[in-house]
Design a protein around this nucleic acid. Structure first.
Lengths: 198, 198
DNA sequence: GTCATTCTAAAGCGGTCGTTCTAAAACGCA
DNA sequence: TGCGTTTTAGAACGACCGCTTTAGAATGAC
């Protein structure tokens, strides 16, 4: 019984993602956002509450569309060891091809917002826990069928896979060098195929 | 032949470091800085130029006092493999003991400033290259005397050591859990003691 | 068609931003 | 002691911040 919304929420959120992703939370003004989203400031506040809540919505949509999409697409399509390799291959490819060097919006949020904001800490930590679980499931499956080394506990292997994932996302923003990123991935993947000597 | 400066430059820069480190560049106002440094805004601009130049000076002093100090203190005091272990032990300890979860100011700069500012990109990348070289020298020395595995090239081992270092600094800001950080360090250190199977 | 409701556009709110200006106080040197 | 310079403190600058208000256009229910 009133005038319906004139814009597509998912589409304008995608525009907000581009702003926040490229410039961060603090450096993005509400006017920047409204311009890029193609709506007015009043519509923005009416639809999303405030700048922080908009960022929250944008981050959710970003995570669902990048990490979430990638995980659900790759899982169960190949043997675990190959899934892990393909995952890192994709991350490196998209990190190197982004000429803006935006990095990963989740990692950016982890450093800019999470340390000062309990809710964002909870959200970001939760996603990172899910990523860690994703790796752990793959490692456990690979260890079970003998395609991944058991010389390290699955927990530790999952942790370092998560770590190298984050490191690639950080390093790509400052030193977007293929050899560097691929060298890191090579080393961590080699760990999956290793045996302890002593 | 004029009035000398009333404050100690190193001391006020330490105060600026605290501000920028805890809140980042954008979220720190010049008034915050002047208050914490105990000088007026005019003195700040007179002595350092502008906000960005002050950040630059603060970052230089931070790097010299943290990474630089640590590298020169640990290098050549123990066998290479032990130096690497001690390095990660220190990083984890100081990451977990910081209740503000400020992380590493260099890593914070890598994400907030470097992607949009050529000079900061150059500076941050340069420090990261030095850290990578530090690791590479240690790995090469260890491989030479047989205390570090040669199943991976020294270049790749140095790269993943750098990566895990960054990852610890990022993760500690969101998930400051000892088991997580130590598990990552354990796994990467195990790689130094590994042999390829296949 | 009427009305209540919710939308859009644009101006405007108080506040804070980075930075500079004004003026007086503090020094080194003659 | 007086001069030239540089420091201070504090007010002030225009610009922009996040956000709200106002006014009017567009809609669905009756």
């Amino acid at each position: 019984m009133a005038r319906p919304r004139q814009f597509d929420e998912t589409a304008v959120l995608d525009a907000a993602i581009q702003c926040f992703w490229a410039k961060g939370f603090e450096a993005t003004s509400v006017r920047d956002l409204a311009d890029e989203m193609g709506i007015t400031g009043a519509s923005l506040y009416n639809a999303f509450g405030d700048k922080r809540a908009l960022y929250r919505r944008a981050l959710d949509q970003y995570v669902a569309g990048s990490l979430g999409e990638r995980v659900s697409r790759l899982a169960n399509t190949q043997p675990p060891r190959e899934v892990i390799g393909a995952f890192f291959h994709e991350i490196i490819a998209c990190s190197l091809s982004d000429k803006q060097r935006k990095g990963c919006m989740l990692v950016n949020s982890a450093l800019e917002l999470a340390p000062h904001d309990r809710e964002f800490q909870r959200v970001v930590a939760g996603v990172l826990v899910e990523a860690e679980k994703f790796f752990r499931r793959l490692v456990q499956a690979g260890q079970k069928d003998g395609t991944i080394s058991t010389s390290q506990p699955a927990d530790d292997l999952a942790r370092i896979l998560l770590g190298v994932l984050l490191a690639i996302r950080v390093l790509a923003r400052v030193r977007p060098e293929r050899e560097l990123l691929e060298g890191m991935a090579r080393a961590v993947l080699a760990l999956l195929d290793c045996e302890l000597v002593a």
